[in-house]
Write a protein that binds this DNA or RNA. Structure first.
Lengths: 162, 162
DNA sequence: AGTGATTCTGACGTTGACGTCAAAGTCATA
DNA sequence: TATGACTTTGACGTCAACGTCAGAATCACT
C-alpha cells in the first residue's frame, strides 16, 4: 500500500542541494494540473529550475511559490495569463535590481537609478490593486448598509416604520 | 448628421411611463454588446421589462442597473454567470421579501421571519466578499511593504545598509 | 537488462462568454 | 405603403485556459 511513492514524503537528501519535485508531485503540491504547469512554461511564466538529462522537468520550492503567485494574480486580481506575464516580468526585474544593488561594483547613483525603477514598477501594480480594493470596499459598504437596514427592521417596533 | 437616431437622446415622453430602450441603445448605454444582453436573458439573468407586440425587447433603467450589477459581479468578484444567477436570485428574493414586509396583511411574526431570511441571504454574500477583501488587503499590504523597503534604500545612506 | 511508474511531446477536445453572419421580421417615418 | 434602420432567431466561429489521449521516452530500482 506504500511502495515508495518516489517523490511525495521525500527523505532528506544527504547533500544539501535543493529538494526538486517531478511534475506530478509539483502539480499536486501546488494544487494545479500537470498540464497547467507545462502551459505556464509554454507561455514563459514558469521555467522549471532544472531538467534531467533526459528532459524531465524538476521543480523547486521557488517554482512552487511562483505558481502560487500566478494563481493569486488569477483569482484575486482576475488577470489573464498575458497580464500575469507582465507582472511577473516586472517582479523579476525588481529582484534583479535588488541583486545589482547588493553588488559591490554598483555605483551609488546607479543604485539610486535602479531603486527608483524598482519602486516605479511596484507602484504601478499597487495602483491597480488599490483601485480594485477601493471598488470592493464600496461594494462591501453598500452590502453592509443593506444588511444594517434589514437589521433595523428586526430591532424596531414590529409595525409601520413610516 | 443627426437623422433622428430614434432612441439615443430621447425626447421626454408626454405620458409619464418609463423610458424604454431598444436593444441597440440599451447595449450602448450599459456598455455591453447586444449579444451579451440576449445571452444574459437566455441564462435567466435579465428579462427585458417588456417587449413590443412584434417581439422586440425593450429595456428599462432598472434593466440597465441589473446589467451593471452583472458586470460588477463579474469583474469585481470574478463570479461566472451561473454564480451570478444565484446571487441575483437571492437579491430578487430580498426585494420580494421587502415588498411582502410592506404589505399591510403581513403578520408581525411573518415580518420577522422574512427579515431574518433576507438578512441571512445578504450575510452569505457578505462573507464571500469580505473574504475576498481580506485577501486583497493582504496582497496589498505585502506589496506596500516591498515598496517601503525599496524607499528606505532611497532615503538611507547610499552604501552597505548592512 | 528488465520492469513499472512517471513523464515527454504533439494533437485534438472542452467550456464559458460571448462574436459574427445570414435570412427574415418589425417599426417609425416619408 | 414603401423605405430604411433596427431587431429577431438560429447557427457556426472564437479565444483563453486548460483537459485528455496516444505513443514513445525516461527514471529509479531489481
Amino acid at each position: 500500500m506504500n511502495p515508495t511513492p518516489r517523490t511525495a514524503t521525500a527523505d532528506r537528501p544527504p547533500g544539501g542541494h535543493e529538494e526538486l519535485l517531478g511534475i506530478g508531485a509539483a502539480a499536486a503540491a501546488a494544487g494545479v494540473s500537470e498540464r497547467a504547469l507545462r502551459y505556464y512554461q509554454q507561455l514563459g511564466l514558469l521555467v522549471p529550475s532544472c531538467t534531467t538529462p533526459g528532459g524531465l522537468r524538476r521543480y523547486s520550492a521557488e517554482n512552487l511559490a511562483r505558481v502560487a503567485r500566478i494563481r493569486e494574480l488569477q483569482t484575486l486580481l482576475g488577470l489573464n495569463l498575458d497580464e500575469i506575464a507582465i507582472v511577473l516580468r516586472n517582479e523579476d526585474r525588481v529582484a534583479q535590481i535588488r541583486r545589482a544593488y547588493q553588488d559591490e561594483r554598483t555605483s551609488t547613483d546607479e543604485r539610486l537609478r535602479l531603486t527608483r525603477e524598482g519602486v516605479a514598477l511596484l507602484e504601478s501594480l499597487r495602483e491597480t490593486v488599490e483601485a480594485k480594493r477601493a471598488a470592493l470596499e464600496g461594494f462591501l459598504a453598500d452590502l453592509e448598509a443593506r444588511i444594517e437596514r434589514a437589521r433595523d427592521l428586526l430591532a424596531g417596533p414590529g409595525n409601520s416604520p413610516q
